[in-house]
Write a protein that binds this DNA or RNA. Sequence first.
DNA 1: AAGAATGAAAA
DNA 2: TTTTCATTCTT
Length: 519
Amino acid sequence: MTSTRVIHQGPSPEEDYGLDAVAQHNAAVTSTEQFPVYQDDAKGLGIYHDGFTPYQEDASYLHNPPTPRSNTTSDGVRTRSGRSTRRTDSPFSNGARVSKSPAARSKKEKKSKMDRSKMPKLTAPLSVLTKDLSVPMKDMDAWVNRSAETRRQEVEKRNGYVTRPMNSFMLYRSAYAERTKAWCVQNNHQVVSSVSGESWPMEPQEVRDQFNEWAKLERANHAAAHPEYKFSPSKSTNKRRKGEASDDEDDVVSEADGDPDGEYRAGSGRSVRQRRQAPQQHEQIPLNNTYGFDSHPYYGQQVSGYEQSHYQYANPGRPLPSNIAYTAEGVPYNTQTNSYIQQQTYQHPQYPYVQDVRGARIPTPKSINGQQQQQQQQSVGGYGLPGGQQMGADELFTSSRTGTPMQQYNQYGQPIYPQYTQQSYQQSTPYQHPAPPPPVSQAYAEHQAYLQAASQPQVAIDPGLEAEFNGNSGQEENHFENAIGDLTAADLGGLEYYQESTSPDGALAPAWSPTEMLK
DNA sequence: AAGAATGAAAA
DNA sequence: TTTTCATTCTT
């Protein structure tokens, strides 16, 4: 059970990466095969599949021309855009996402008109790729805990229309939107969507669980704020959007079109849908997130104020490798001082958008470079541990899912909590020199190629960035090398050398103070 | 105004 | 099973 290789035997490659133009693009640009995909202990360094990994198919699809027609098979899940997604079921996932609607593709092959050559091929989820960007992440705790009052204000702003609560993915996308834009050089939000969509299934189950919890919170708080709300989509393909709630004459449809349920949404496509609810003033405090791990350690221990580590995202629930641990009750304490970190009751700040960076663009590459360049590789959590295959926690896997449990444990069941405790992080060898550096040049070249390709058609990039672009000292180099840095760190053999709280960037991205961002 | 994404909920 | 709609903002 030492080497967890492939297992994957289900979906033939053709259905995996159906019409992935990115693949072809990348194939044309450079051989992706040599790309240091960190997976499956490829280097014999004890790095096993950790949940981020792009998957075996990633390497194989190049050789196998797509046959877009074919449908999903045993375990192939493909997105609406035709991309394939991995099965992210971790045995730990309470998600209980039993069977994803099997007959996905039926009629309309939704052909995406997007030119995906402008899209980077993700080799890791955004939580990894962007972890070192100084672009702040949206404070989702604060967001989903917006007070009912705030929510009603939003409704008023929308002219009385109550929008749906965001689902987990929407939350995810919004959480990473700015970072995604920084990472990709594109500023197009469609790219953000695409990239997010590609990243989402790559995210470790813990991360997605986190966003699911947030989505649940969002729904609950939404319901609390708008008790009478009920989702009632319009039947007609009436694209009416945004602000307007009622009073639209030009509205089509309704009973005139022989609409069966005329009264369902009488007059306007969406006006009647939501009756305005009485402004009940019994302001209910939003549900506090008492979900196990979703509270953010950095509320308790402030790091730089807003820059949250990837680890906390990718590994919610696990003790921080550095010096933060949690009691059974979830109370964070410092393992080095043996003192409790200030209890994080985190009553939502008065204002929701703690880190909502709206107009923010990419921070000056200079500052990014200056700071991040120095940083040692702070390994990202989640990599498998050396010899970490003996998951003796079979009891934990009782959540029988149809399928082949054993294999899945091996390949995806990496986050073994027992193993992630103490032993691995703290007391493992402080710092051994990394093994020979990964083939950065190739990776770098590939990404450079991507960047070039991206900039070919039109340079819709911040002017200030373009200089860096040509001068190669931009952040694109940076974030990419950071991605490689993950690898390097992983190459240490599972050494989780994390300096979260000791990050030297006390003045990290000074221009990015949340307050300023809100302007 | 279209569109890029996933998921919840309704038809 | 299929459709709508949450978000966002460039094109």
